[in-house]
């Protein structure tokens, strides 16, 4: 079910923390503890280094490609408390640098393109920033949710813009509220909703017993309900479902052997890829009877994990 297309030696000099393909799947952006962001052009089995972006002064945690209708934009966030939006204009240059956080910026996510050029980021300082590009004024507006999660926000994800209901004309749902989901060090997941020019906490979802490491709002394509996946230091992955985006029902997808680091939905929103500390990537799908089933599991021999254990004696 899973076959390797490319193996890219990123040339990073330290741990990789994120790797993301662009909208078309033609470019790969990676970031690392070596403070750099790299961009590769991916062509059927081969890859070429297109750029090596240096501008962060700390480990770079995450990268995110903007929708191409806004140009070739890449956002990166780093331990150095900065978010940099890079733009390719012949060469890659900094388009904007956001320094509004007081601590490590742990996650960045572009809003659905329908909302314009909007970026959300969250930080260990406990706050979430929503940065939007104002086309008329040609500047960036910042809205901040302070104290979103005590002692830090780890992950953030946008609610898709398009209604789940295929039969509805997407245009009629233009007024659908913008929503965000965030996961934090207070073990909570929170749903934020834009009301007027404010972002307010609409819901807090309690289930995890340790840091929420990653949250992912499923693309709604073809699904009648909203889904959010969350994973945590408590080794569990929880699927939250809602018919109205207001009341949410949790289902524990699985309890793993180790910390779960990332959850990612397929673009069709029906497959969830889970990557955990046990060095396995597993794919899950909801069966007809509503049970989540592991449909594929891959253990990798990519890195010899025991090598870096410092244990002696």
């Amino acid at each position: 079910m899973i076959s390797v297309l490319n193996t890219i030696d990123t040339g990073h000099e330290d741990m990789i923390h994120d790797a993301e393909l662009d909208y078309y799947g033609l470019r790969l952006a990676t970031c690392s503890s070596d403070n750099s962001v790299k961009i590769y052009d991916i062509k059927s089995g081969t890859q070429t280094l297109a750029a090596d972006l240096k501008g962060h002064f700390g480990p770079v945690w995450q990268v995110a490609w903007a929708h191409p209708k806004y140009g070739n934009l890449l956002a990166s966030c780093s331990y150095d408390r900065k978010v940099i939006i890079w733009k390719e204009a012949g060469e890659w240059t900094k388009l904007y640098e956001y320094t509004g956080h007081e601590s490590s910026v742990n996650s960045v996510a572009w809003a659905p393109a329908e909302y314009g050029l909007v970026l959300a980021c969250c930080s260990s300082d406990g706050s979430i920033s929503i940065i939007s590009y104002n086309q008329d004024a040609a500047n960036w507006d910042v809205k901040k949710i302070s104290g979103a999660h005590a002692i830090g926000v780890n992950s953030i994800s946008w609610c898709p813009a398009i209604s789940a209901d295929l039969s509805l004309d997407p245009l009629t749902n233009k007024e659908a509220s913008k929503r965000l989901v965030s996961g934090g060090c207070d073990n909570l997941i929170k749903i934020w909703k834009e009301q007027g020019d404010q972002w307010v906490e609409e819901n807090r979802l309690e289930m995890h017993m340790d840091w929420v490491r990653d949250v992912a709002w499923a693309p709604s394509l073809g699904l009648q309900k909203s889904l959010i996946a969350s994973c945590s230091q408590d080794k569990r992955v929880v699927i939250w479902t809602s018919d109205d985006n207001v009341s949410w029902t949790p289902t524990i997808l699985n309890t793993f052997d180790d910390v779960v680091w990332s959850v990612s939905w397929s673009l069709t929103g029906n497959i969830l890829a889970i990557s955990g500390g046990d060095n396995k990537v597993s794919l899950w799908r909801e069966s007809a009877d509503g049970q989540w089933q592991c449909i594929s599991e891959v253990s990798k021999g990519l890195g010899q994990t025991s090598n870096d254990e410092r244990s002696t004696l």
Partner: peptide
Amino acid sequence: LKRPRAAKFAFGGKLVTFEKC
């Protein structure tokens, strides 16, 4: 803070993975 590994879906059923090296 150092996420050692992740798996991320991308367009075309592609899954980008990396792990602790």
